[in-house]
């Protein structure tokens, strides 16, 4: 436990407001760049995460095993942290003959899980992304910015979302989320 705490930038900090959030336990993340239409790449992704190739802007699976579409030639893969190094090596091996790049980026980011009925309203205070359920349904992986920092988030369900940002700005992200989630700050635009 104490060892796991050492690995996340905020030590698993959380906040309970009208939206509650906590920093999640260390998660293995692998950046993959290559031709996403290639069958070998799709097979390697499935072997690493247990998930199929995500469609544009989508995420298959979640933090415990997932594949998120980051750009037309880039995926962010989520794997159990203990297996990140091993799976990165396996992926690199599987894609050795491809024009592809695989990197273990597990220590690069901070991740939060957010829960609450007013989640869309809270995030809409911080980002220019369109948070309407039609534009951003569950499973849509949205890269955008949160205040002044780059971040990405996706809704796992209507009242649960996950958010990732760079580790170096985890404090800033935490403070932003905390400020926006203070009780009494409900907006009631997307949820009443």
């Amino acid at each position: 436990m104490s060892e796991a705490r050492l690995h996340t930038p905020l030590g698993g900090a959380g906040f309970k407001g009208y939206v509650s959030f906590t920093e999640v336990a260390p998660t293995g993340m692998i950046a993959l760049r290559g031709d996403l239409a290639n069958a070998t790449v799709a097979e390697a992704v499935e072997a690493a995460t247990g998930q199929g190739m995500p469609a544009a802007r989508r995420i298959e699976g979640g933090l415990d095993g997932g594949a998120a579409w980051a750009s037309p030639d880039e995926l962010l893969l989520f794997v159990p942290q203990a297996e990140a190094a091993e799976r990165t090596a396996a992926l690199a091996e599987a894609l050795a003959t491809q024009h592809a790049l695989v990197a273990d980026v597990s220590d690069m980011r901070a991740a939060f899980t957010l829960k609450g009925a007013h989640l869309r309203d809270m995030l809409a205070k911080l980002t220019p992304a369109d948070l309407s359920p039609e534009t951003l349904p569950s499973g849509e992986f949205r890269r955008t910015h949160l205040g002044q920092i780059a971040a990405a988030f996706w809704f796992e369900a209507e009242e649960t979302a996950h958010l990732i940002c760079f580790r170096s700005v985890a404090d800033y992200a935490f403070d932003l989320l905390k400020e926006a989630s203070e009780p009494g700050g409900e907006v009631g635009y997307f949820s009443i």
Binding site: R57, P128, R142
Partner: peptide, 11 residues
């Protein structure tokens, strides 16, 4: 045109 997101100027 790459991701079809309607992005505002700040992105």
């Amino acid at each position: 045109p790459a991701c079809r997101i309607e992005a505002c100027e700040s992105e």
